[in-house]
Amino acid sequence: MISIRQATQADIDILYELILAIARHHGQEQFVVTSKAQLQRAGFGPHPRFGALLAEIDGEIAGYASFTWNYSIWLGSELMTLDDLFVWDRFRGRKIGEALMQELSNICRTRDIQRIKWEVQQDNHQAIKFYRRLGAEVEPKGVCRWNLL
Rank of each mutant, 00 (worst) to 15 (best):
G97Y: 03
Q38S: 13
D89C: 00
I113S: 07
E60S: 15
G97W: 00
A99V: 08
N70C: 13
L104D: 06
K117C: 11
G93N: 10
H47M: 00
R92W: 11
Q38T: 09
K117R: 03
S77N: 12
R132T: 11
N106M: 03
V32R: 00
R94G: 10
Y16N: 04
L79Q: 08
K36F: 00
P46G: 02
R90S: 14
L82S: 11
F67R: 02
I73G: 02
R90A: 14
V138C: 15
Y16W: 12
Q122V: 13
V87A: 03
E137K: 15
D112Y: 07
N70H: 15
D89Q: 15
Q40T: 09
V120P: 08
R132F: 07
I22H: 08
S72F: 02
A99R: 08
I96W: 10
G135Q: 04
N106K: 07
I116S: 07
Y131F: 15
Q126P: 10
C108E: 07
M101H: 02
F91A: 02
Q102C: 02
Q30R: 12
S105G: 15
H47R: 13
D123V: 09
L79Y: 14
D83C: 07
E119V: 04
M101G: 00
F130L: 09
I14M: 05
Q126H: 13
I113Y: 05
S72C: 03
T34N: 06
F50Y: 13
A21F: 07
L82C: 11
C108R: 00
E98D: 08
V32E: 01
P46Q: 14
C108F: 10
F50H: 04
F91V: 09
V32N: 02
I128T: 08
K117P: 00
R92Q: 15
R115F: 03
G76Q: 05
R133C: 09
R41Q: 15
I19E: 12
M80N: 07
L85P: 11
S105L: 02
D123K: 11
G97I: 03
I73Q: 08
L54E: 03
S66G: 06
A21R: 06
G76F: 08
L20A: 05
R41H: 02
E29N: 02
E17T: 15
S77I: 00
E137W: 00
Q126T: 14
K129A: 15
A65T: 06
Y64C: 10
R109M: 14
A52W: 01
R24A: 13
E103D: 11
A42E: 12
E119Q: 14
L18P: 04
G97T: 04
K36R: 12
D84P: 09
W118D: 06
R92L: 09
Y64H: 13
R90L: 11
L134D: 03
A52Q: 01
I96G: 08
G51D: 01
V138D: 07
Y64P: 02
N106A: 14
G97S: 08
L82H: 04
H25Q: 11
H26N: 12
T68P: 01
I113D: 01
N70R: 13
R92K: 15
Q28L: 14
W69C: 09
Q30P: 00
R24Q: 13
R41K: 15
D112I: 14
K129V: 15
L39T: 04
I61Q: 09
L85R: 06
